Computed example of a mutant assay.
Amino acid sequence: MNASELQDIIAWMIDGARSAPTPPQMMAECSERLVRAGLPIWRVGVFVRTLHPEIYGRSFFWTHGGRVETGTVDHKILDSPEFAVSPLAPVFRQGVEVRARFDDPASARFPIVEDLRAEGATDYVAVPLINTDGFVNASTWTTRQPGGFTEEQLSAIRSIAVPLARYIEIVTLRRTASLLLDTYVGNRAGEKILGGQIRRGHADTMDAAIWLSDLRGFTALSDRLPAETVVEILNLYFDCQVSAIRANGGEVLKFMGDGLLAVFPVDDYVGDEAEVCSRVLEAARESRAGVKALQFPNGDDVERFRFGVALHLGRVLYGNIGGGDRLDFTCIGPAVNLAARLEKIASRLGRTVVASERFAGICDGGWSDLGEFPVAGFSRAARVYGLHDEISAAAN
């Protein structure tokens, strides 16, 4: 093992592995440089836990002569029989190093040993990658060298683990920040916040189609069902909308109890007003079908979900609003206020989908003129439109 080259690799990692701009590229370059320095690694794995509601962790596998392969696992992995007998279990749970020499009968307690032995491996070591706060990720190192790793080579692996842990911690923190912002404020808002738009009052104007929806009868529903059941119902209900909104270019900005506010930006990149409004209407139809198919038990009966959504097109103010150091990235303006009023009108009319005159005039979706209605806070009445294919519940 060339000590000088090893130190160069460690220095390169401490400096941020600048010649490898992505984690897979960093892993490939680091592994290949270690091989050239005399470390006989055949396969390297890195396992990074994430702060994500659906994904427990990500994996990166480099194999000598091959590419870096990436993957993800969900939270169910922790309760799986495979994880219980994996060398990684004690690494994650106790932060300890685990070695499996393939000529040691005791290593047979790990089923992965037989799989790797069949591929010619002779030694395997799992090394914890410990963050500055004690949080543990893991790395695995496998060789085909006869007799396995020497003590000098194991020492080199341990020395690499330290800067590798720091690199992973930095990259993961930024990725976690991005994922959390995407999860809680949306992708577009998250990009702006990470880009430095964090001061109160810092806002932009943009043209957007506005979506404001509400679950009908939610107050009565909350009163007669256990809180846990209400949460489950809301999650099912929002699932029907969020997937349709995101698939059609929208961004969910806010959940307000049973309400949902989303925007579909209009610009040269995503398309003109007609194109954007057409996708908004498609999302509304998909959501309507999804919600209609849902049902929940209420005693001996089964109730259907009922919801309404108002669609409008206008200019909004999009940015940071709040008090002190507690801010919310959202959109405001008369256009949003009108959408909120239209949603209340939809409820009174028993309609699922209603649109403003401007939205319906741009989007050819088969609209019926439902008439003019006074709108609280606005000097003029608003003309409201509903879909031809929808019969008002109030007319039944």
Rank of each mutant, 00 (worst) to 15 (best):
G333S: 09
Y318V: 00
R306I: 07
A293D: 13
R315P: 03
R315D: 10
E303K: 06
R315T: 11
Y318G: 07
G322C: 08
G319M: 07
D300A: 07
E303G: 04
L311F: 08
G324V: 12
V302D: 05
G308V: 01
T330Y: 13
G322K: 05
G299F: 08
R304E: 09
G290T: 02
A293I: 10
A293Y: 10
F329K: 06
D301T: 01
A310D: 08
D300I: 00
G323W: 15
G319D: 12
G319Q: 05
R288F: 12
Y318M: 03
G290L: 11
H312M: 05
D328M: 09
D325T: 01
G314H: 09
G322A: 12
G290S: 08
G323C: 14
L317A: 07
R306M: 07
P297H: 06
G322Q: 08
R288T: 06
R315C: 12
D300E: 13
L294Q: 01
P334Y: 09
A335W: 15
L311W: 07
R315W: 08
D325L: 01
A289V: 06
P334W: 12
Q295N: 13
R326N: 09
K292L: 11
K292G: 11
G290R: 00
D325Q: 04
V291K: 03
A335S: 15
